[in-house]
């Protein structure tokens, strides 16, 4: 299981080992700068033949299909599919609601999200893809553009070890701004507890889908938020707004869980409708099993679609 704190990022090696052989693919054609195995909309020099086109002045004569010329006496050039690398972006919610201390020495939601980010980033880098990171509190705190290589990954890990960010409550709006900077075609992971107003988040997700981004919403929650296990009179405080409520949890529990379930159902329904991958994790989950199965299923889905 991954574990982390505000100063360093610790990822369970077993998680990395399980994710190592799983390919990270996008359901869309990607746009990349370097040659890689991901299909793009551009034409390039791969082995995948696409079509013949009339020779135009300026074309590379090495691309002329001399066999066709011999049969038809016309100059055609062969066009091949271009394969490029993929840009993977992580939009990480670093607001105060993600920093709520967990019980029983478990990782906080932010630790868990950072750990997942680090593991997936390792997946991407190991298959020569570029990774970028955006940290969002009540504004965009950090913006690390997507790059390749282990040095970049190490830099990313440094930031994940102590992600900056405070406040919160407007994740959807800030994520919209981030979305506009991402450009088209790529893979994007949103890691948030999704407890802020959902409509802006949904708008952002739609925008990303329009930009042909393969989007995954990773909702990270604390187990106590899901089960509400308190049994003594407690005063609760919202970490971002500071609002306080004191009450008997035993009396409040049933309605709380009902409202939370409705919230979750709304997210699930939206993601299903829009084709957004959705995964909910909490700090009591077995992260190794959960992530590995999720990415395997994702790979299968992408392969069938392709």
């Amino acid at each position: 299981m991954a574990n982390g704190n505000t100063n360093s990022l610790t990822i369970d090696p077993r998680l990395l080992e399980r994710l190592k052989g799983i390919e990270l693919k996008s359901r869309f054609l990607v746009r990349g700068f370097y040659e890689n195995r991901h299909r793009t909309r551009d034409f390039g020099a791969s082995n995948e033949f696409i079509e013949h086109r009339d020779y135009q002045q300026g074309d590379d004569i090495r691309r002329i299909d001399w066999r066709v010329f011999a049969r038809t006496n016309r100059l055609f050039v062969k066009r091949f599919e271009m394969e490029a690398n993929m840009r993977v972006h992580f939009i990480l919610d670093t607001s105060d609601s993600m920093r709520v201390p967990a019980e029983d020495r478990r990782p906080t939601k932010l630790d868990l999200a950072a750990c997942i980010t680090g593991a997936v980033a390792m997946m991407a880098v190991s298959q020569q893809d570029s990774v970028g990171l955006f940290c969002i509190g009540d504004r965009m705190e950090e913006a690390i553009p997507a790059r390749q290589g282990m040095r970049h990954l190490a830099q990313l890990y440094q930031h994940l070890g102590a992600p900056r960010g405070r406040g919160g409550g407007n994740f959807g709006e800030v994520a919209w701004e981030v979305m506009r900077r991402l450009g088209r075609r790529g893979v994007t992971f949103l890691l948030t507890d999704a407890l802020d107003p959902l409509d802006p988040i949904f708008e952002t997700l739609k925008g990303l889908m329009v930009r042909e981004q393969d989007v995954t919403l990773l909702q990270v929650l604390d187990e106590t938020e899901l089960t509400f296990p308190f049994d003594k009179m407690t005063e609760f405080r919202h970490p971002e707004s500071g609002r306080r409520i004191m009450g008997d949890p035993l009396a409040l529990r049933a309605r709380y869980l009902a409202r939370l379930e409705a919230h979750q159902e709304r997210i699930r329904a939206f993601c299903h409708q829009q084709g957004v991958d959705y995964l909910r994790v909490h700090n009591g989950d077995d992260l190794i099993t959960l992530l590995s199965s999720h990415f395997l299923q994702r790979l299968v889905r992408r392969s069938i679609r392709c």
């Binding site: 609601s97 993600m98 709520v100 201390p101 939601k109 507890d193 407890l195 604390d222 106590t224 938020e225 308190f230 407690t234 005063e235 609760f236 405080r237 919202h238 970490p239 971002e240 707004s241 609002r243 409520i245 009450g247 409040l252 709380y256 409202r259 939370l260 919230h263």
Partner: peptide, 9 residues
Amino acid sequence: RPLATLEFL
């Protein structure tokens, strides 16, 4: 006690 899901109370 900090609780991020306070809005559901």
